[in-house]
Computed example of a mutant assay.
Amino acid sequence: MYGWFQKFFKSRVALPAQHEQEAGVTKHLTPSASRASSPLSSTSLSLSSSSGSSPQQRFVLNSDVRWEKKYDVFVCHSDTDSDIEEATCLVSFLEASPCCLRCFLWQRDASPGAAVFSEVCQAVQDSHLRVLLITPSFLQDDRCNYMMQQALAEGPMSNRLIPLIQNLHHSQYPLELKYCYYIDLSKNPNGYTLVNTTVLHYLEALTKKEMIHGCSMDGSSSD
């Protein structure tokens, strides 16, 4: 099946080459359940940064299923200066070439005069994945907790949440997210790259699922 996809990608893609992504991917995250470092499972991150300009990745980034939503990533963070700076740096990294992911950063992208909670709920629904920048300030921010609950309500077991922690003891990690693997930005220098790769993997899986569904529908019609 994988070989068939490779042939399909090569036969369909005719896009200009992009610059190759220069970042190493660390193959470990910190599971909230065991609170210890553990290698990712084979279903977690299948794309590496070396595939930044591959035809397969370009096909995924230009797939119709990706563009069904307005944003690739919704970023939730607190109002403190340090958290705003961290979130802005993360978004700048994700939006840079070659992937140019589409991010929602509420301070930048929320409409002036709009109701904050309504705007946030709509952005959560319009995003493929949700990144939570969890810090001590995040835990004390009612707005952040509201956004986290909205993200959980949209898909608590859908692999669409990416928790990031910084300057946070594992005992402070929210119980609502105990089933999620998190990335510790304080200890992992490649944390941004891991987020980028996780988003690409999700979009790749989503695209393949849509292709398989489309092939099944075509087969049923022929029969």
Rank of each mutant, 00 (worst) to 15 (best):
K69Q: 08
K70N: 10
K70I: 11
K70E: 15
Y71Q: 03
Y71V: 02
V73M: 08
F74I: 01
C76N: 15
S78F: 03
T80H: 12
D81T: 07
S82W: 00
D83I: 04
D83Y: 05
I84C: 12
I84M: 10
E85R: 12
E85M: 07
A87D: 07
T88D: 14
V91S: 11
V91R: 06
V91N: 02
S97A: 14
P98G: 06
P98L: 09
C99E: 05
C100I: 03
L101P: 01
L101S: 01
R102K: 11
R102N: 04
R102T: 01
C103M: 12
F104G: 02
W106E: 08
Q107L: 13
R108C: 02
R108K: 14
A110N: 07
P112Q: 04
P112K: 06
P112W: 03
F117L: 13
F117G: 00
Q122K: 15
A123C: 09
V124P: 01
V124A: 07
Q125W: 00
H128P: 02
R130C: 11
V131P: 04
V131C: 09
L132N: 05
L133E: 01
L133S: 06
P136Q: 04
P136H: 07
F138K: 06
F138E: 01
L139V: 09
L139W: 06
Q140I: 00
Q140E: 13
Q140T: 06
D142R: 14
C144F: 05
N145H: 05
N145R: 13
Y146N: 09
Y146Q: 11
M147I: 08
M147T: 10
M147K: 05
Q149G: 12
A151E: 03
L152S: 03
A153K: 09
P156R: 12
P156Q: 13
P156L: 11
S158E: 15
S158P: 00
N159T: 01
R160M: 07
R160P: 03
L161Y: 03
I162E: 02
P163V: 05
L164N: 06
Q166I: 03
N167E: 09
H169M: 08
Y173M: 11
Y173P: 02
P174H: 00
L175H: 14
L175Y: 14
E176R: 10
K178V: 11
K178G: 00
K178P: 00
Y179G: 00
C180Q: 10
C180K: 05
Y181G: 04
Y181Q: 09
Y182R: 15
D184F: 09
L185P: 00
K187D: 06
K187P: 00
N188Q: 15
N190D: 08
G191R: 03
L194M: 14
